[in-house]
């Protein structure tokens, strides 16, 4: 880790100016991933701008049922928030199934969105990685890729996005609020926030230098919707997802799916919105067979490798079970 300067920002404008001025300056919020990566030598900033004292730490429930979550709200407080638990239980479940109690007390909402992949090669500076160092090659294709993505991958990178929270937010049609360097606000739907790796896997989001995430807005969920977050992992806690499914389901009285939104974790290079599955199911009766077919259709473009091919069947099973369960809950 190189020496770095440290500044505690007292207002967003000063913070943004400092960060925009240097490619080697970064914002420091909870630090749970940044400090980790700095120790590994993956990230080598020379200036940390501590933004934890900026005023983005509130949870505002809107009269329409939506919510604006400040970027600095830690996961523990967000998952503990009664309004979130009542109206966005999939988000609370996702948060509670991620990391550990002591990580969640510090890890912020904005930082969670910007988590870097846990691909072992990205984290090991002695091995090639296109994401960490462009055009050095991808070690995972021939190496360990069991935990990596099958959707959205390229020949350059198959690193998965590790966040649980963002998967739930993807299903909840979240909008990321930014403050540009010039002070102007910008709102980006979360599903447009992340870039696919393509041939530039080091570029992960639409953020421009100095952009500061100020919050995440969740619109009110569909009327009468039920939702859940289901995560499959190697141990029963404190592990990243092999596959996770955030499902938001609203049915009509006749049992057809009026609205369905699915976020997938563990399978995509970004928090994955299962648009194809949604398209095939919307307005249809969710029979077992149709659910499975629709779930499988999402993976038509998947590029599985030997170690992670199991994720496709696993995801199909979990999507099917999760939606079936929510539909059942709606009927009750």
């Amino acid at each position: 880790m190189k020496p770095f300067a440290y500044e505690r920002a007292t207002d967003p404008g000063a913070a943004a100016t400092l960060v925009a001025d240097s490619t080697e300056a970064v914002y420091l919020a909870g630090g749970t991933n940044l400090v980790d990566l700095m120790k590994l030598g993956v990230t080598e900033p020379t200036l940390l701008v501590d933004i934890t004292r900026l005023p983005y730490d509130t949870i505002e429930h809107r009269p329409d049922g939506g919510v604006l979550i400040g970027a600095l709200v830690p996961g523990s407080r967000l998952a503990g928030d009664l309004g979130v638990r009542e109206r966005f239980p999939a988000l609370a479940e996702a948060l509670l199934s991620g990391a550990s109690g002591q990580l969640r007390t510090v890890a912020t909402t904005g930082g969670n969105l910007l988590q870097r992949t846990r691909c072992v090669y990205f984290q090991d500076v002695t091995k090639p990685c296109n994401k960490r160092r462009p055009e050095t090659g991808c070690s995972a294709v021939q190496g360990l890729h069991r935990d990596l993505a099958v959707l959205g991958t390229s020949d350059f990178c198959l690193a998965g996005h590790p966040s649980d929270m963002a998967v739930a937010m993807a299903a909840l049609d979240a909008v990321v609020h930014l403050r540009r360097v010039n002070g102007s606000p910008r709102a980006v739907p979360l599903n447009d926030f992340y870039l696919l790796p393509g041939d530039t896997p080091h570029r992960e989001t639409v953020l421009q230098p100095g952009d500061l995430i100020t919050g995440v807005e969740l619109p009110p969920p569909p009327e009468g919707a039920a939702m859940s977050y289901r995560k499959v992992r190697d141990r029963w806690s404190y592990a990243f997802a092999l596959v996770s499914v955030a499902a938001v389901v609203a049915t009509d009285a006749d049992g057809t799916l009026r609205e369905i939104r699915l976020g997938l974790g563990g399978v995509g290079t970004r928090p994955w919105r299962a648009r194809e599955t949604e398209r095939l199911l919307t307005g249809r009766e969710p029979t077992e067979e149709r659910l499975r077919e629709a779930a499988r259709a999402e993976f038509a473009s998947a590029r599985p490798l030997p170690q992670n091919a199991f994720k496709i069947d696993l995801a199909v099973d979990v999507i099917t079970a999760a939606v079936r369960d929510l539909v059942g809950r709606q009927r009750r």
Binding site: L28, G31, V35, T105, V106
Partner: peptide, 8 residues
Amino acid sequence: RVNSCLVF
């Protein structure tokens, strides 16, 4: 509770 290893 906090992991003190990840806090500067």
